[in-house]
């Protein structure tokens, strides 16, 4: 598994826009558009923080994962630097403690565990241990994620029902909406 993953990551690293095997056609890895300063994860274990699962490089290391702290739930808030369309998401975790029920909310600021049931989720996933092992992107309800400024991921429970949930990798795939693409701007400046 790990051996299979490493070359894929290596191939993706120099040119992230050119999809390696797991990235769906026509989509890009949205990791470059995350507004890192505002990423928030509630109930994370301080020694196993969300960057371990989200950041390029860290997330491809199976030894690094985000873990829950006081119970099995996690609430991850990911704002983007520009509006995106979200096509699919990838979750990778250990078979035992990996996430099971995942609820995704778009554009919900200030969500906490107390009001997580106040809104209907934009999409809800029920991952099997197969999903986690394969680490293939799960397609989302594309129509629900056409105008995403921020994404809130609520991990409700895990595979084994244990107290600690662990996620090794979260990857989001989609496209940016036609606003000013900061990456293109940079390229023009370079010439």
């Amino acid at each position: 598994m790990a051996a299979n993953n490493a070359p894929a990551a290596a191939a993706a690293a120099p040119a992230p826009a050119v999809p390696a095997t797991p990235v769906p056609r026509g989509q890009v890895d949205l990791v470059d558009f995350i507004d890192w300063s505002s990423v928030e994860c509630l109930n994370q274990d301080p020694s196993h923080s969300i960057v371990n699962a989200l950041k390029q490089g860290y997330r491809d290391d199976d030894g690094l994962y985000v873990a829950s702290d006081s119970d099995e739930q996690l609430l991850i808030h990911i704002p983007f630097m520009q509006v995106v369309k979200l096509h699919s998401a990838l979750f990778k975790g250990p078979e035992e403690d990996g996430p099971k029920t995942i609820k995704l909310f778009s554009n919900k600021e200030h969500m906490g565990f107390s009001n997580v049931n106040d809104y209907p989720p934009s999409d809800s996933l029920d991952l099997s241990s197969n999903h986690l092992a394969e680490s293939k992107p799960v397609q989302l309800k594309y129509v629900k994620f056409q105008n995403v400024r921020s994404l809130t991921i609520f991990i409700e429970d895990n595979q084994s029902g244990s107290d600690v949930s662990k996620i090794q990798k979260i990857a989001l795939y989609g496209t940016t909406v036609d606003t000013t693409n900061m990456k293109d701007l940079k390229k023009i400046e370079e010439h």
């Binding site: 994860c41 509630l42 109930n43 994370q44 702290d69 006081s70 565990f113 107390s114």
Partner: peptide, 8 residues
């Protein structure tokens, strides 16, 4: 207390 902890 637990609620506070859960909310960081």
């Amino acid at each position: 207390g637990k609620k506070l902890k859960k909310n960081n």
